[in-house]
Amino acid sequence: MIRRSSFPLSQFDYTVKIILLGDHSVGKTSFLSQLATDNNNDAIPCRCLHFRQNCQVELEVTHHGKRILVKIADTGGQERFRSITASYYRGAQGCLVMFDAERAETFSHVYDWNNDLEMYTNRQFLSKFLVGVNFDSSRKQVTSEQASRLASQLEMQFHDLDPRSRKSTVGVVIKLLDLVMVTVQRLPSLTIDIRPGQVTELDASQKQNGRRWGLRTNSVASDIPLNVLSGHPPHKMKCSC
């Protein structure tokens, strides 16, 4: 099933990219498939605009009065061969590192996935959750306490997930979006281009360090909630495409 958006990017206030990491068959595909189903009873409006199985889902989320285009990318089976390329990580503002509580080896591999994440992204600008599935199973080999301790060690939050439940899957996405906004709030020197599809940059004093932040937005600085910016005007940049 493929659904394509009928809205141009200019009608969204933000564009956020979230990536999924984890061993094969930990629930990533079920997670995306659940998000691709529409439900008018969602506590926070979340509508599927585009879905490619084992690849990506695009969601329209209305949150805090803003329209957000959320792109969630799956590894597409590449995780089985440890062949995920750097391009998969590029531009991500959020990440869900997933494991299966019934398979202890998927939990131990979380260290490896987190190492890859830190290798290919800037941890200062990335929001990440440790997400476990099958915690309601009598066959689980990992406890919530163990998962919480590991999440604390890796400086992320832990959430258990039922990938078969839309309420559970949408809830995790919304919580991660909230954390993305909090992360942006801690960067008072961040400036955001108002044109769609542009990549934001840090101010001139930090550009010398070659660091980039990938939050995309189509709103002017004064419209950004939570005091994300602190009086810095939007910085225009030329498109590199």
Rank of each mutant, 00 (worst) to 15 (best):
I2S: 13
S5L: 10
D13T: 04
T15H: 14
T15F: 13
K17A: 00
I19C: 03
D23M: 02
D23N: 15
G27V: 03
F31P: 02
N40V: 11
D42P: 10
I44L: 10
C46Q: 02
R47D: 07
C48F: 03
F51Y: 15
F51P: 04
R52K: 15
Q53P: 08
V57C: 06
H63Q: 11
L69C: 11
I72S: 02
D74Y: 07
Q78Y: 11
E79Q: 15
A86I: 14
Y88T: 08
G91D: 04
A92I: 03
Q93K: 14
C95L: 04
D100L: 05
E105S: 12
N114W: 13
E118P: 03
R123N: 04
R123Y: 01
S127Q: 08
S127T: 13
V133P: 01
S137E: 08
S138F: 07
K140A: 01
A147V: 09
A151N: 09
S152Y: 08
Q153M: 05
E155R: 15
H159F: 14
D160Y: 07
K167H: 08
V170Y: 06
L176Y: 10
L177Y: 09
V180L: 08
V182F: 07
I192K: 03
D193E: 12
T200F: 04
A204R: 14
A204S: 12
Q206K: 15
Q208D: 01
W213K: 03
G214V: 00
R216H: 06
D223R: 12
L229F: 05
L229S: 09
H232E: 04
C239M: 12
